[in-house]
Nucleic acid binder design. Structure first.
Lengths: 205, 205
DNA sequence: ATGACCTATTGACAGTGTCAATTTGTTACC
DNA sequence: GGTAACAAATTGACACTGTCAATAGGTCAT
């Protein structure tokens, strides 16, 4: 009565988003069309227009949900992580990497500026939260040191995101070396630690 | 006689690719459709099928051309660059960054695994060339030192690519700090130099 | 119960990718 | 030189897609 089966369908909006998520997993962004989503829910082809005026707004709403999922996972990991900023930064990074590996289609959608409206407040606020999450740990790490915080944060986030993206494309598949595929992320983060340890000293150069 | 005006149109294939490139700049990947490209060239809607059996193969061929452009630009920069591996690596990185800033739609297409066939030999070989281009400089830099070459190469490429990608999405727009927007790339590369200087020492840890 | 309002359906429109059948143009051979 | 073989481009069709207007349905307050 309160939420279910109150109108024609119940709450179609959440059902549409759930169907959209499934279609995204199955067939990527291309697979989540307005009509396809409606079909999956079992509703007429123009029904979604009442809740999402566009395919763009539908995808944007879905993306917002996905970002919330990532953020929730990060919070979970940070809650059980020790106070050491290094391992907390590593926790954030691995949260992203795990998500990208587990759900490549979802992760790819997050950064599609052509089909998702990142200018919307729904997106901007969520991006800011993620960014501040990273900065928080770096600030703790950098307390008292002369450090270019934003460059480090941007560099770290860029490396993590770029790695997931390039890996998904298949760019790093045949690179044979001493580090096995699954350990590469850890090696990357460990490498970046070098920056965190030494970069502050070089700033005055 | 040899190449131009030999058949109905001349060489349609290159004309289609040129039109596709223009449409990509104007409207992104979505804008470059089979029919739209044909229309732009002034040919019937199914004409492209003789040269590209798919929209996918059309986009893949276009992407191959774009990668060649980037590679040519890198070669040009490396030719006039000094022998210092640091500045050569910086040259490669800035080549990518400049390209991404100048042609965001082209750059975005390069990494779209859903519409471009990166498994094709046309793509694989080109990716390998780029990767080896980076590794060459790192190898010179690392000669005699105990260094995990691939992790550094992957980390560098990931950071550069991720920065371009996230910047295009608009992720770093309101980050106010001491570094102005245009100098951020240089700061990132300078920061990464810290890794190159120190990482080899930490490997035994 | 009546009217207002939100929600969903239906039908249409222009546009897309892809395929089969056809026509056109070019080349090579006898 | 005429003709057959072949490649290239056109045409028309099919099943899709997103979006919009008009319609019908269900729910609520008055």
């Amino acid at each position: 009565m309160t939420k279910n089966k109150q109108f024609h369908h119940g709450d179609l909006k959440t059902a549409l988003l759930r169907a959209a998520r499934d279609l995204l997993d199955e067939g990527g962004e291309t697979g989540v069309g307005v009509r396809a989503v409606a079909r999956k829910v079992g509703v007429s082809h123009a029904a979604p227009v009442n809740h999402f005026k566009d395919r763009r707004t539908l995808l944007t709403a879905l993306t917002a949900e996905l970002i919330d999922d990532v953020r929730a996972d990060i919070d979970l990991r940070l809650k059980v992580a020790p106070k050491d900023p290094f391992v907390r930064i590593e926790a954030i990074a691995t949260a992203f990497i795990d998500y990208g590996v587990r759900h490549p289609n979802r992760y790819a959608l997050l950064w599609r500026y052509d089909v998702v409206d990142h200018e919307s407040e729904m997106m901007r606020s969520r991006s800011d939260v993620i960014y501040e999450l990273i900065c928080n740990e770096i600030d703790i790490l950098a307390s008292g040191r002369n450090i270019d915080r934003d460059t480090i944060a941007i560099g770290l986030w860029s490396m993590v995101h770029g790695y997931i993206d390039l890996k998904t494309v298949g760019m790093f598949e045949d690179r044979n070396d001493s580090v096995t595929g699954d350990e590469r992320p850890k090696a990357l983060i460990k490498m970046f630690r070098t920056v965190l340890d030494n970069y502050g000293l070089n700033l005055s150069k």
